[in-house]
Design a protein around this nucleic acid. Structure first.
Length: 170
DNA sequence: AGTGCGATTGACT
DNA sequence: GTCAATCGCACTA
């Protein structure tokens, strides 16, 4: 759930990727740096960084304080504040509003200022209860070369709101 | 101080 | 399907 001056925007997380302890593809692999320090916060904190100079990525730290690991939030099924997301994205199509990690942060207007935020407490950005879990599929991660074969991407099976090629979403 | 490179996206053939 | 934009950061010297 994202709180903005115009109102609340929220949705159901339908796709994630895990970057686990000892993961060569994870940003925490070579220790703590200025950019990745939020990955080492207690589980449930936001790690936001800029990728490719234009897209923000939203992660949730997943281990105890001092251990670097996290989960990348890759796609959202928009539920509330859809007009707000449409304005933030500059497009109309519901399916594309938050399908992809960079699109998701754009739709929710998530940027570096939210880095380090506790997502389990009431605030400008927070996680809610997961009603309707649904059937989860598993695949390799997208855009990853190191540790490429690990099945650490999780998605809601059958959801039109997940990103990635069809071959990974069966 | 300089260099190389992405956990992507949107535009285009 | 292909491809370039874009910039903060980690790395080297």
């Amino acid at each position: 759930m994202r709180k903005l001056p115009e109102g609340v925007a929220s949705g159901r997380i339908v796709e994630t990727e895990a970057y686990v302890v000892g993961d060569a593809a994870g940003h925490a692999y070579r220790g703590m740096t200025r950019r990745n320090r939020s990955l080492f916060l207690e589980h449930g904190h936001a790690y936001v960084y800029l990728a490719y100079g234009s897209s923000y990525m939203l992660n949730v730290s997943s281990e105890m304080r001092g251990i670097g690991a996290g989960v990348l939030i890759r796609a959202l099924e928009p539920l509330d504040g859809i007009p707000i997301m449409r304005l933030n994205r500059g497009i109309e199509r519901l399916r594309d509003l938050a399908r992809g990690p960079g699109r998701l942060t754009a739709a929710l207007r998530v940027d570096r200022w939210l880095d380090g935020l506790d997502l389990c407490r009431d605030g400008p950005l927070c996680l809610g209860r997961g009603d309707e879990p649904g059937e989860t599929g598993q695949s390799i991660r997208i855009g990853i070369s190191r540790d490429a074969s690990r099945l650490l991407r999780f998605y809601l099976r059958g959801s039109p709101f997940v990103s990635g090629p069809r071959s990974l979403n069966e």
